[in-house]
Computed example of a mutant assay.
Amino acid sequence: MKEDLVKTTQSLFKISKSQQEIDTFLKLNKRNEVIILQKLHSTDLSVGEKSKLENILALLKSLSKQIKRKQTSGQGIGPSTSASNSTNTTSNSPSVVWKMISSAFRSRIQTGAIINLNCIELDQFLEESRPLLKTKIIQNLKTLGPIKLNVKLCATYELPSTGEEDYKYFVSCNKEILKVDSIDEIIKQLFETILSKSEEFQHRGSGWKYVGTSFLLVCINKFSPLNGVTYIALPSWLESKGLINIKNNDKRCFVWSILAHLYHVDVDKENVLSYPQSVHDILNLRDIEMPVKISDISKFENQNPNISINVFGIDSSSKSIIGPLYHTKQVKPHHINLLYFKIR
């Protein structure tokens, strides 16, 4: 059913020329959006089904935006296929536009589509999308702190032997974004991945030829970096930083690190047996689950009024310590800096 809806909508988009046809298309597309939204919020969907419905919803919204743009610019309806067609658009009108997309994923903070209005080549579309994507990332970083982000490109391809057209999707991996000054490099990596996958698709003998880009789906997810579980050997470049890395085999990495600060020892610093074992007599851990999450650190500080905590992370690519990922509101007599590290 979903595939039929997409094909029918795509066909109507191509043939809609007159004002009456455009109005009919927009009404039908709006009704289809409602149908997809209802399905999207069903409770029995698999991850794959949710993802497909998100794709369709973004596609429907992009077609509505594109048909309105072509109507306004006087180009007529249908994809531009040459540079000369794009010159008819108003010079000060945007080439891309942001549209919010509803999502059924609980960990999702925000889903949006950067919709292509008049870019012909893929690299041109990505370049035009860059400042808009950066703005959205900065807004979420300032409001929510560290995030995870991935993008998905939807582009139209044609099979010259049959004339068949279809939408193909190219997805990047998730990227953790912890600070504003890393955004440009991360966007560059995301776009390089998309371009590489698109080129690989065309060059591996598929027969499909690139026609144009519909949208870039932007998925911004929650990122809770602190979930310290057990001992992990640190990379060699951290060995000279004077860190104490407790060799525990339980889920109390956070607790042992706190005790290592409170009870200084001169030898065997990484051995859990070097520190008091009566943890609950020393620390108030009421209602704090192990392993400790970053969202529980403020609760820990409230329950242990002489202790304040900052948590830092690492950037493996630049071999540097970054953060803080968590910053205390008030420095107390026992102020502790922790380092969060996980195996990628």
Results as ranks from 00 to 15, higher is better:
86 S>R: 04
135 T>P: 00
219 C>I: 12
305 P>Q: 00
274 S>A: 10
329 K>H: 05
272 V>Y: 11
27 K>D: 12
320 S>L: 11
52 K>G: 02
234 L>R: 02
130 R>G: 04
191 F>M: 05
334 H>F: 08
282 I>D: 08
224 S>I: 14
269 K>D: 09
211 V>M: 05
164 E>P: 00
20 Q>V: 15
64 S>P: 04
310 N>H: 07
14 K>Y: 13
110 Q>S: 10
81 T>H: 14
329 K>F: 02
291 P>S: 03
308 S>C: 01
201 F>E: 11
192 E>S: 15
35 I>R: 04
324 P>C: 12
83 A>W: 11
188 K>Q: 14
30 K>E: 10
236 S>A: 10
338 L>P: 00
36 I>T: 13
65 K>G: 14
313 G>C: 10
68 K>N: 14
7 K>D: 08
15 I>N: 03
38 Q>D: 10
225 P>F: 15
114 I>V: 15
92 N>Q: 14
191 F>Q: 09
319 K>Y: 04
13 F>Q: 06
320 S>E: 13
95 S>R: 01
31 R>K: 12
41 H>A: 05
69 R>Q: 13
208 W>I: 03
139 Q>W: 00
189 Q>I: 11
3 E>F: 06
339 L>I: 12
301 E>R: 00
197 K>V: 07
344 R>E: 08
136 K>P: 00
56 I>W: 05
88 N>S: 13
198 S>V: 13
277 Q>C: 03
22 I>P: 05
233 A>H: 11
27 K>I: 10
60 L>C: 03
70 K>L: 13
150 N>C: 06
249 N>A: 03
177 I>T: 08
249 N>K: 12
152 K>T: 14
212 G>A: 14
49 E>V: 05
80 S>M: 15
